[in-house]
Simulated assay, not measured.
Amino acid sequence: MAWLVLVLSGVLETVWAIALEKSDGFSRWLPSSIFGVALVLSMAGLGYALRTIPVGTGYAVWVGIGAAGTAIVGMTMLGESASLPRILSLLLVVAGVVGLKVFH
């Protein structure tokens, strides 16, 4: 259960990162609200998961999912560069996250 919560919390990290960008410095209420709710839920889920998952592993997986998810959304929906080196770098991040889970 902790791993599922950790993965969902990592996805919520992507949500709050994108909402933060869309909030335009907290001047737009809807993205700002989404940011706040997603941030609180993401942190709460991380805290729950770290009850049973070691902090180094849990935090690295959480950050990796959030970073990779944010970069993928940026490339697919926000017009950011989707160059081969960026995609290969993301695959390395994903491989690291999978490795942390497998060798936990």
Score class of each variant (00 low, 15 high):
residue 1 M to L: 12
residue 2 A to F: 15
residue 3 W to E: 12
residue 4 L to D: 09
residue 4 L to H: 12
residue 6 L to H: 01
residue 7 V to N: 04
residue 8 L to A: 13
residue 9 S to M: 03
residue 9 S to I: 04
residue 9 S to W: 03
residue 10 G to P: 00
residue 10 G to T: 00
residue 12 L to K: 00
residue 14 T to E: 03
residue 14 T to F: 08
residue 15 V to I: 13
residue 16 W to I: 01
residue 17 A to H: 00
residue 17 A to E: 08
residue 17 A to Y: 04
residue 17 A to W: 02
residue 18 I to K: 05
residue 19 A to V: 10
residue 19 A to W: 00
residue 20 L to Q: 11
residue 20 L to M: 13
residue 20 L to E: 00
residue 21 E to S: 15
residue 21 E to L: 14
residue 22 K to M: 12
residue 22 K to S: 14
residue 22 K to I: 09
residue 23 S to K: 10
residue 23 S to G: 03
residue 23 S to F: 08
residue 24 D to N: 15
residue 24 D to L: 11
residue 24 D to F: 12
residue 25 G to N: 03
residue 25 G to D: 09
residue 26 F to M: 13
residue 26 F to E: 02
residue 27 S to T: 15
residue 28 R to P: 08
residue 29 W to T: 11
residue 30 L to Q: 09
residue 30 L to N: 10
residue 30 L to G: 07
residue 31 P to C: 04
residue 33 S to E: 07
residue 33 S to P: 03
residue 33 S to A: 13
residue 35 F to R: 01
residue 35 F to K: 04
residue 36 G to H: 06
residue 37 V to S: 10
residue 38 A to F: 03
residue 39 L to W: 05
residue 40 V to T: 14
residue 40 V to A: 14
residue 41 L to F: 13
residue 41 L to M: 14
residue 43 M to A: 11
residue 44 A to Y: 15
residue 44 A to N: 12
residue 46 L to T: 00
residue 46 L to V: 05
residue 46 L to N: 03
residue 46 L to P: 00
residue 48 Y to Q: 05
residue 48 Y to G: 01
residue 50 L to N: 06
residue 50 L to A: 06
residue 50 L to W: 04
residue 51 R to E: 13
residue 52 T to A: 14
residue 53 I to E: 01
residue 53 I to F: 12
residue 54 P to V: 00
residue 54 P to A: 09
residue 55 V to H: 06
residue 55 V to A: 15
residue 55 V to N: 14
residue 57 T to V: 15
residue 57 T to D: 09
residue 57 T to C: 09
residue 57 T to L: 12
residue 58 G to A: 01
residue 59 Y to F: 10
residue 59 Y to M: 04
residue 60 A to F: 08
residue 61 V to T: 07
residue 61 V to C: 11
residue 62 W to E: 07
residue 62 W to C: 00
residue 62 W to K: 01
residue 63 V to C: 10
residue 64 G to V: 06
residue 64 G to T: 04
residue 65 I to P: 01
residue 66 G to L: 06
residue 67 A to T: 15
residue 70 T to K: 02
residue 71 A to T: 08
residue 71 A to Q: 11
residue 71 A to L: 09
residue 73 V to E: 02
residue 75 M to F: 08
residue 76 T to D: 05
residue 78 L to P: 01
residue 79 G to Y: 08
residue 81 S to F: 09
residue 82 A to K: 15
residue 82 A to P: 07
residue 82 A to G: 15
residue 84 L to E: 13
residue 86 R to Q: 11
residue 86 R to I: 04
residue 87 I to K: 13
residue 87 I to G: 10
residue 88 L to M: 15
residue 89 S to K: 05
residue 90 L to K: 01
residue 90 L to M: 11
residue 92 L to E: 06
residue 93 V to S: 03
residue 93 V to C: 02
residue 94 V to M: 13
residue 94 V to I: 15
residue 94 V to A: 12
residue 95 A to M: 07
residue 95 A to C: 08
residue 95 A to F: 06
residue 96 G to S: 04
residue 96 G to D: 02
residue 96 G to I: 09
residue 97 V to A: 05
residue 99 G to S: 08
residue 99 G to A: 13
residue 101 K to M: 07
residue 103 F to N: 11
residue 104 H to A: 13
residue 104 H to R: 13
